[in-house]
């Protein structure tokens, strides 16, 4: 009796919350099919009945009149984000393993200081970094290139990867690597065969964060690229004009948030399977 009441209550709460979360998406979805008249005519939700649906908003993202071509920026964004994220994860995982397993000491600098040094990169506001990055890329001749952006993004994403992975490796007892070595693995084999498989949840979480931060960056994409290379957030901003094109902005919002929703969905699935969780006392 009581449990049933409680679970009904729980489901009601979940429903209300989902409605709250989904409302902006609904708004964006309907708006993306409207025209100027449809937007200004007050809140309307039912196509054909309340407003006349139009593909204008979507067309303007793919080279339609008064719009942009979103395809190239989309591909560039994927290349830059995925590239930088994967490199950050590989480097970050290796660095984190070292920081978790070995004691480094340079004067008063210890492991915890090194980890903090990584995090501290994220404390500074982006604007402080913009000028040094600009000058560095200019010196390397990488301004307005995907390679340049990937390098900058690695600098931004690596701290996240290291921070998350150090925490995960600390959670795998050192005795597990030792045991692998006694079982005949070299330290590298111990890392790849035993420690890494047990840290998969951490890698997934770190990868997800890297992809989200990388994908959403506007500032550096805006300051370090101009014409040859254009990432999605910058391209979308170009849509704006004296009259705010709500329809095409809504369409672009939906299309740019889609990959993140997919990633979050799969990562959540993988983590909640729970088989990755540890068995260590």
């Amino acid at each position: 009796m009581m449990p049933r009441f409680y679970s009904a209550l729980k489901y009601a709460a979940v429903l209300i919350w989902s409605a709250f979360v989904l409302a902006p998406f609904m708004w964006a979805l309907t708006t993306s099919f409207k025209t100027a008249n449809g937007v200004t005519g007050g809140p309307t939700y039912l196509p054909w009945i309340q407003y006349k649906p139009s593909l204008h908003g979507w067309e303007s993202l793919f080279g339609g009149a008064g719009g942009i071509d979103i395809v190239q920026p989309y591909i560039d964004s994927i290349i830059v984000t995925v590239g930088a994220s994967i490199i950050s994860i590989v480097l970050g995982t290796l660095a984190a393993y070292g920081l978790s397993r070995f004691q480094y000491r340079a004067g008063f600098v210890k492991n915890s200081d090194i980890v903090f040094f990584f995090i501290s990169q994220r404390i500074m506001p982006p604007i402080v970094l913009a000028i040094p990055f600009f000058l560095m890329l200019q010196f390397l001749g990488l301004l307005d290139t995907k390679t340049g952006l990937i390098i900058v993004y690695i600098a931004l994403l690596l701290p996240i990867a290291v921070w998350i992975m150090v925490d995960f490796f600390d959670g795998v007892p050192r005795a597990v690597d030792e045991m692998a070595m006694l079982d005949g693995c070299t330290p590298f084999e111990a890392f790849f065969k035993v420690v890494l498989p047990n840290s998969l949840p951490g890698i997934l979480v770190a990868l997800m964060f890297c992809l989200i931060f990388g994908w959403n960056d506007f500032f550096f994409a805006f300051t370090l690229t101009f014409t040859d290379t254009q990432l999605l957030p910058v391209a979308i901003v170009a849509l704006n004009s004296s009259v705010t094109p709500w329809w095409s902005l809504s369409a672009s919002a939906l299309i740019s948030v889609a990959p993140l929703v997919l990633i979050a969905f799969f990562v959540e699935r993988l983590l909640s399977r729970g088989t990755l969780a540890g068995a260590i006392r």
Binding site: A175, V176, E178, M179, L182, P197, N198, L200, I280, R281
Partner: peptide
Amino acid sequence: DVAMVYQQFINYPH
């Protein structure tokens, strides 16, 4: 070629 059993129950969790 040394095998070892620890105090804590250490196995490969995965």
